[in-house]
Design a protein around this nucleic acid. Structure first.
Lengths: 254, 254
DNA sequence: CTTGACCTTGACGCGGCGTCAACCCTGCAC
DNA sequence: GTGCAGGGTTGACGCCGCGTCAAGGTCAAG
């Protein structure tokens, strides 16, 4: 007669595992000796080994029972099914690996590739890290809301950046962020923005934007985000309002 | 300002997940409105999306925090490590698949290939299913105790089976199992066993067996197993004892 | 008699939430 | 007013396969 640790040793499992199998009913509770110890025989070793064989092959414990007393054909079908489940898990993990491989650089985190390119262009042109991060976060939000439109949006953004005044705008705002709020230079920024908005309006860009950004609540959210990130935005909006323009992400004539 | 379900919708996660992230400290608890509702802003959406991006790439939640504010080089190292862990998991699952693929037929379950061949030979020679299953279980035990020696043992077993008297022994015992205990024919079985034992002894097989089966407790276990499986074994042992032989699995001159 | 190695039951922990339960708030239709 | 649907809140259990204490009782050896 065997004690639980001897049984476990013969089968190559832990004592705790044996007790677990008792608990879930996989292995019947054996008789006890005079002091309450469980006593096992050779048949228990056999059953335990067969359980382990299945468990180590990835069979969920809940299904081991049915497999142990299945006919060969049932057994084959069940094995096929379990193998299919294992395949699915493998695929899932492979997908994880694929994704994690794409997370090489910091920016790539949650940002589509087009946006990364755009952000790199900004950085390369001398725009500050803080500003680029703000842009990145804004585009994370955009990509969450309109994943399909991102290539479209980025094409337009890149086109805007071809106009040297756009870059000048970014750099001016960067400077002001460092230097502190200076109403005279802010005024110049606002003037520049108005000038470019007028041109956009003439080209009809604003109308197209109206269609694309058709979720007022979300636009409000983005505006609030911009305001909280850069206090200067609020002041700029006031100056723009004086010049007849409201909004921020989506600019409109008052 | 967003409610928790709006936040969750923007990031493409469940409300429960958001609350879980609060609980584990991944996402800071936001301010509450007058009725206790959580209120979120755009920055929370951004953070939540970045968390999801990592989580969906297979990063354990416990490590998401450190990855979110890691430098690019730290990030790269961590990503490498996580990828290694994912690879390990994949390998493990593949191993499971390999094993389960081997579990095609019933006998294969926990029995080495050599034994399967031997059992098939017995079955093919007309030995009963019950007897073959008993043999199988005994060999499961043997393989657990002496995995290395199994090929050796099976070679010997096969050699024994080349002697037609061995098969006759199996078939006789099968018959007696069905017909009930009949001392006269049992006597004939015992005589045959003695005869073969004597020959084994002359060839020196018994001495080699002594060396191989050097674990008395385990031999006792196997004997007990045989006895409990077939009540006839006990009677046979008595008859063998009268003829000067003791033991069962490991036979010795009294 | 002590020690150390075993046995017993009971309970928590892990990972990432899903899924009740039991209750409160809000806005709208009647 | 009242009722109802559809939000929100905290709290707790469940999953899976055990690992790992905790707090004892038992056994064989020195």
């Amino acid at each position: 007669m065997l004690t639980i640790s001897q049984l476990a040793a013969y089968a190559g499992v832990t004592v705790r595992a044996v007790r677990h199998y008792h608990q879930v009913g996989l292995l019947p509770e054996p008789a006890r000796d005079h002091s309450g110890y469980r006593t096992y025989g050779a048949a228990d070793v056999v059953r335990l080994i067969r359980i382990r064989t299945l468990a180590e092959a990835g069979v969920p414990l809940a299904r081991v029972q049915e497999l142990l007393d299945a006919s060969p054909s049932e057994f084959g079908a069940a094995v096929d099914q379990i193998d299919a489940e294992l395949r699915a898990k493998v695929r899932e993990l492979q997908e994880h690996r694929r994704r994690i491989a794409q997370l090489a650089a910091g920016d790539t985190l949650a940002v589509p590739a087009e946006v990364v390119t755009y952000l790199d262009r900004l950085r390369g042109a001398g725009v500050s890290t803080a500003m680029v991060e703000g842009e990145r976060d804004a585009w994370i939000l955009m990509a969450a809301r309109w994943p399909e439109q991102i290539p479209e949006f980025m094409a337009e953004k890149n086109a805007q950046l071809d106009d040297p005044r756009t870059l000048r705008l970014y750099l001016l705002i960067d400077e002001l962020n460092e230097a502190g709020l200076d109403d005279e230079r802010l005024g110049a920024v606002a003037d520049l923005m108005v000038e470019m908005n007028e041109e956009s309006a003439r080209r009809g860009d604003l109308d197209r934007q109206d269609g694309a950004l058709g979720d007022d609540a979300f636009v409000a959210l983005l505006d609030a985000f911009a305001t909280s990130a850069h206090p200067m935005v609020e002041r700029l909006q006031e100056l723009m309002a004086e010049r007849g323009w409201t909004g921020w992400i989506k600019m409109e004539r008052a």
